[in-house]
Amino acid sequence: LQAFIKTLTGKTFTVEMEPSDTIENLKAKIQDKEGIPPDQQRLIFAGKQLEDGRTLSDYNIQKESTLHLVL
């Protein structure tokens, strides 16, 4: 599935991932794409901060969901 990552500066980019991917995997993909170390990334979806060990499906993240990236 493709999801949108929106930063506080208003920049939006897309990442490809599977519902079974962990938040940790997602942070690694963001690092590959944007060069931001995972330990500096905080991802917010539906008002909740996402925990590394959980999966996208745990948070009911669907295709074309928008996640907010806070540094």
Rank of each mutant, 00 (worst) to 15 (best):
L50P: 02
E18L: 15
L43C: 01
T9F: 12
F45P: 00
L71I: 13
K29V: 07
K6Y: 09
Q62V: 13
S65R: 07
A3Y: 15
L26A: 02
E34L: 15
T22H: 03
L43Y: 04
I5K: 01
E16G: 07
A46H: 14
P38I: 15
D39Y: 12
P38H: 11
A3H: 05
E34D: 04
P19L: 12
S65H: 10
T55F: 08
T22V: 04
T12V: 13
L50A: 02
F13Y: 05
N60M: 10
K48M: 13
T9D: 13
I23N: 00
L43D: 00
L56T: 03
E51L: 10
S65N: 10
L26C: 01
L43S: 00
E64I: 07
L71V: 12
E18P: 03
H68G: 04
K48P: 02
I44Q: 06
N60D: 09
D52P: 07
S57P: 03
R54S: 07
R54H: 12
L1I: 15
T9C: 13
I5V: 08
D32M: 14
V15W: 02
L71Q: 07
S20W: 14
A3G: 04
S65I: 13
P19A: 11
Q41W: 05
K63G: 15
F4D: 03
T66R: 07
V15K: 00
S57D: 09
K29P: 01
Y59C: 03
S20C: 07
G35W: 02
E18D: 13
K11H: 13
L56E: 01
T22P: 04
T22N: 04
R54M: 12
F45M: 08
T22K: 08
E51I: 08
G53C: 06
S57G: 11
H68A: 06
T55P: 07
L69V: 06
Q62A: 11
E34Y: 14
F45Q: 03
F13H: 02
D39C: 11
A3P: 07
G47D: 05
L8K: 11
Q49G: 06
T22W: 04
D58Y: 15
V70G: 05
D52N: 12
E64F: 14
T66H: 15
I44M: 11
D21V: 03
E24W: 14
S57M: 12
I23E: 01
K63W: 11
L26M: 06
S57Y: 09
I30E: 00
D52W: 03
S20E: 11
P38V: 15
K6N: 07
